[in-house]
Design a protein around this nucleic acid. Structure first.
Lengths: 354, 354
DNA sequence: CTGAAAGCGCTAACAA
DNA sequence: TTGTTAGCGCTTTCAG
């Protein structure tokens, strides 16, 4: 391994001169500088990032502690992060296993956590004693969540309202909501839907709410199969959105709901729901319009192509990194940042007014 | 930040004693040792991984340089790696962007590259001057690939033969192969298929070969749309397996192929193919049996559930890490390691003999 | 059994 | 403009 010492020896100068030459800092004789750079090049010198990190007390590395790498939404988020990190001279790492114990072993300057629940757990288990700037990339799951750390979230309250407005414009009034959680869950999607249905459309929100959770379904056998419904507190368990979507279709049919449109918690659920509801004899969008949330690319592979409320994941990822870096640099940052959503119009919503 | 010096001060000893006590190395008075550990605990001391890395000249971190995080096969591979790394006291990082320039900035002891092409590029651009143990996780893409670095691959030659034998047992003889590459491509799947069709089944291999590449399709307009067909050498472009599978279905029908079964290069292609061929009026498996390669979980969501040749990705990932670590530890390692495949029997293959 | 000292590769303050 | 020095947090040798 080539070090600055080697270069110094070759050039007949001291290491500090080499350092200054290579870092473009302080004074170095122009001739010598050229010479030093030439030698460094010849020797194929690479600064040792570990030594530099030790000396500078920073690593220029950031970590995205993702919950679920199988979910392409998270990967898109990560790609947004990579890009922004790169621009700022940082390396963006990712770790797919939520094992907090490894964090102190990692050589990083800051962490991006995947949602508020993980953040809470982190604060509980590690964060108290181990300070490392943290930022949360939130889906907007819980509107009452205490902002313990700065968070960046998709503006899903406004977004859901927009989605519902879009459906209303197409003539829909009876719009069911399918979510994997309870009626009382404080996520902004549910919240916005309740508001809109109740005050804008004046429809019965109990009737059109389909929560695929053990509470909402009164311990229906079919929902108790899901791992995440069995345990209470384990946020490590990936959620079965797809399967829950399928179950929702069964229940939709059983209840003979007269909704003309269904808004689903996310695209995965929407895909599971659509697949199954078609099997049960419904035609999309003729009999029933479907709208997802996320705007994933795979929605295109559905038949018909899934209309969705797009969360701009890349932009969100970039924002997370921006904010984390500005915290690292000691700049103050406001605690909540909202990224707007977009209506992604494809084929699964019918215009009833035409 | 708490350092060993702080602990030493508190305990009234020197740093070396603290070091020895905390590392369980050398002699330390039992009483003092207890005391030191207690203080470390109270102060919530965490060894600085950077300082340790600098001193020990190793980071205990490994990198999986994945090509495509959207492909769940790679994620499974990664999970196998994580587990094995953890067992051996290593941290497994992953980076989704193939930008070789960041590698020298990373604090890692070794790299796992995603296939031989990437390995070649790596060797070309970085590896020559920058030594860092490297291992290749190969799909078995090219049987003539020069083993420049140790590689771990799924035994797809044997596996493909097994898959074809399985199909033969079910009464299939006319078995088409769908791949995204040329007839002359030296990947072991194609190679094994050619062999089996020619010598075991004595069928016409030209007739039943469906290569979805510009060469195989004589610059058919429809294949020229794919990004990866436009450029010659860029291995960074993700491949459009799904879409190519759909195109293959069109071509299968156009040619009025009388195959009773189709073996596809991977599950993604198989899913695209199946979806589209159903649309074209075929029923699976009644009219046509389908078999994929990979054994992905999403194959279960297809209708009917996809029968596939399972690549044991977790085991492969673990093997990669094992070998990389043993190289790091100076143990010799043989260059080629093969991981066996498994027939994953589901619903998309019909038994013609019943 | 303990502690001083050297050193991992680098930077930065300061003296020359 | 340059080189010496100290130090980032840690380990390890070696004299006490």
């Amino acid at each position: 391994m080539v070090t600055r010492k080697d270069i110094a020896n070759r050039a007949g100068v001291s290491v500090s001169v080499v350092s200054r030459a290579l870092n473009n800092s302080g004074y170095v004789n122009k001739e010598k500088k050229k010479e030093i750079i030439k030698i460094a090049d010849e020797l194929n010198y690479r600064p040792n990032p570990i030594a530099m990190s030790l000396q500078q007390q920073k690593t220029k590395q950031l970590l995205y502690y993702s919950k679920d790498l199988y979910n392409s939404f998270n990967i898109e988020l990560y790609e947004g992060m990579i890009e922004e990190a790169e621009k700022n001279g940082y390396v963006m790492l990712i770790n797919g296993r939520l094992n907090f114990d490894v964090i102190p072993h990692l050589m990083i300057d800051g962490i991006i956590l995947p949602n508020q629940y993980v953040t809470m757990q982190y604060l509980d288990r590690i964060g108290k004693n181990y300070h490392l700037p943290v930022v949360t990339a939130s889906y907007g799951d819980d509107i009452y969540f205490p902002a313990a750390v700065p968070f960046i979230e998709s503006d899903l309250f406004k977004g859901t309202i927009n989605a519902l407005e879009y459906l209303r414009e197409k003539g829909h009034r009876k719009i069911a909501l399918v979510t994997p959680y309870n009626f009382t869950a404080n996520n902004s999607r549910t919240y916005a839907w309740k508001y809109f249905m109740q005050y804008e459309l004046e429809e019965n929100i109990e009737k059109y709410f389909l929560g695929i959770s053990k509470e909402s379904l009164h311990n229906d056998q079919r929902v108790l199969c899901f791992e995440e419904e069995k345990s209470e507190n384990d946020f490590d368990i990936p959620e079965s959105f797809y399967e829950k979507g399928m179950l929702a279709a069964d229940i939709f049919k059983e209840r003979q709901l007269d909704a003309t449109a269904v808004l689903l918690f996310n695209d995965e659920m929407a895909i599971g729901f659509s697949k199954h509801i078609k099997k049960l004899g419904y035609t999309i969008p003729e009999d029933l319009s479907i709208m997802g949330i996320d705007g994933l690319e795979i929605g295109q592979y559905m038949e018909p192509k899934l209309t969705s409320l797009e969360i701009q994941s890349r932009i969100m990822g970039a924002k997370c990194v921006q904010i984390l870096i500005s915290i690292l640099e000691g700049k103050k940052e406001k605690c909540a940042t909202y990224v707007p959503t977009l209506i992604l119009e494809r084929e699964s919503v019918k215009n009833l007014l035409e």
